[in-house]
């Protein structure tokens, strides 16, 4: 077929932020499918709770301290996370580098606290269905946390190399920050389910 040029797009940028970038939509799609997974796991929790005569089955409600500590760290992390997002959009390399270091540390902290969180459930996964589902929920979120912290650290290292200077990196940083918000929100919900439903 013959071609008839009708538009010139040579002036367009090669990266952009938020919904302009296909990557942002990919991230959103991953968030949607992971959220569905969380929702179904939480659905299973309530399904089992309704079936059981007493809930939690054969165990006291979990210890509040470690889970609440994780909650506090994650909620606090929202502030540097949004600052990073702001700096990334302004393409301020020095501040983004600093922010990424902070976010890497903020990401590792809850993982350390989590070591105490599993025993704080005060039940083993193979004791009964209640034990299985709370371990499952916590395990799911831990995996989730682990992968995003891994991502953050790799991106942090990247920002300190030559490649960090490419404009596209800032778009990546902003998508990473977007995903971190989801990690925080999902923990708020899971925290309420794991720690407060048994106390109701």
């Amino acid at each position: 077929m013959r071609h008839r040029p009708v538009a010139d797009i040579s002036h367009l940028p090669t990266y952009d932020f938020g919904s302009a970038s296909p990557m942002w939509w990919g991230t959103l799609a991953f968030i949607a499918l992971e959220a569905t997974g969380f929702a179904l796991a939480i659905g299973t929790y309530f399904y089992l709770a309704v079936l059981a005569r007493h809930w939690p089955i054969g165990a006291p409600a979990p210890d509040l301290l470690p889970g609440t500590a994780v909650l506090a760290i994650l909620v606090a992390s929202v502030v540097p996370n949004h600052m990073i997002e702001f700096w990334a959009r302004r393409q301020d390399l020095a501040k983004v580098r600093l922010g990424m270091v902070v976010m890497s540390i903020v990401g590792i902290l809850p993982l350390i606290v989590r070591i105490w969180e599993f025993p704080a459930l005060r039940i083993s996964w193979d004791q009964n269905a209640y034990g299985s589902i709370v371990w499952f929920l916590l395990g799911l979120h831990t995996t989730h946390l682990l992968t995003d912290v891994g991502d953050t650290i790799v991106l942090t290292v990247l920002m300190f190399t030559q490649k960090g200077k490419a404009g596209r990196r800032f778009s990546d940083v902003s998508d990473n920050a977007f995903y971190w918000d989801f990690v925080v929100v999902s923990w708020v919900v899971l925290y309420l389910v794991i720690y407060w439903v048994p106390r109701m």
Binding site: L48, L51, W125, N128, A129, Y130, S132, I133
Partner: peptide, 18 residues
């Protein structure tokens, strides 16, 4: 797979599963 591998009780009615 967890039920089969590490002994969780999601589907075991004797331990609160279904």
């Amino acid at each position: 797979i967890l039920d089969r591998l590490v002994g969780t009780k999601f589907f075991d009615p004797a331990a609160g599963g279904d």
